[in-house]
Amino acid sequence: MDPVTALLVTVVTAATPLLFAAVGELVVERSGVLNLGVEGMMLAGAVTGFAVTLTTGSGTIGIIAAAFAGAAMALVFGFLTLTLLANQVATGLALTIFGVGLSALVGSGFVGTPLPRLPRLDLPGLTDLPVVGPLLFGHDVLVYMAVLLTLAVAWFLARSRAGMILRAVGENHEAAHGLGYPVIRIRYFAVLFGGLSAGLGGAFLSLAYTPMWIEQMTAGRGWIALALVVFAAWRPLRVLVGAYLFGGVTILQLHAQGMGLFAVPSQVLSMLPYLATIVVLVVISVGPWKGRLQAPACLGRPFHPTH
């Protein structure tokens, strides 16, 4: 593999966990709910995916279990914030802290155990093509799932009736309720989808990216995913671009260091995703895009059907 292809292949893998987590959170936020527990749900997915794959020997079952684990965590969040109307920010933060502890407890017996990596797609002829081969046909199944999931979400939100209802709930839950849509139930579905997707992101970490379990192995990727949703101004296709951009920046700075190019300190490059997010927030608040690119109007506001 030539260096540029190698770099691009690494970017794809670095972007995948971000993409899973961010596209899930995007759906949650478009329905008007802010779940800051992405990191906790990813960890639940990572440890479950690892444990189940190790004990059953099947990566497929592991991936499915990871998705369910993420969704189970999301269900706790949903019950607290949607049914009991607890504060979403506080509950989300608690979910992250809870996920860190719970995953450490569940995973304590699995530390130091190696696991074979998820198999890569290997299409004879296609994978051997120069550049395109390893880039397009040389990944494991989760990499493709992340992209397909994002495209599906983009279609769902823009084109499907259910997607439009979900957006309506996020923009104005009173009006949606007035039209007879079950606001709470729709938000439950969105929250569960967010958990499922974060769980898959976690599974990618513990099964493919670094096939092992160690505590807190997400190392802040859940928070980058949250920033990514804002960076993408709540648009799925921009999440796709943003995830590859954020992943690309991380990998590029490592390559720059290895080649001894020290134009910009590595710490500055590590800050870039967050700086970019702040810039986007400023632009959509005061710039010429004000009003066109903005957060769902009901984001983070609890809904209690009174009439």
Partner: peptide, 17 residues
């Protein structure tokens, strides 16, 4: 000190180089 994903990426980068 501890970011398995980033450590792995750094290793990939160095091997690629």
């Amino acid at each position: 000190w501890y970011d398995p994903g980033k450590e792995a990426d750094a290793a990939r980068t160095l091997i690629d180089q």
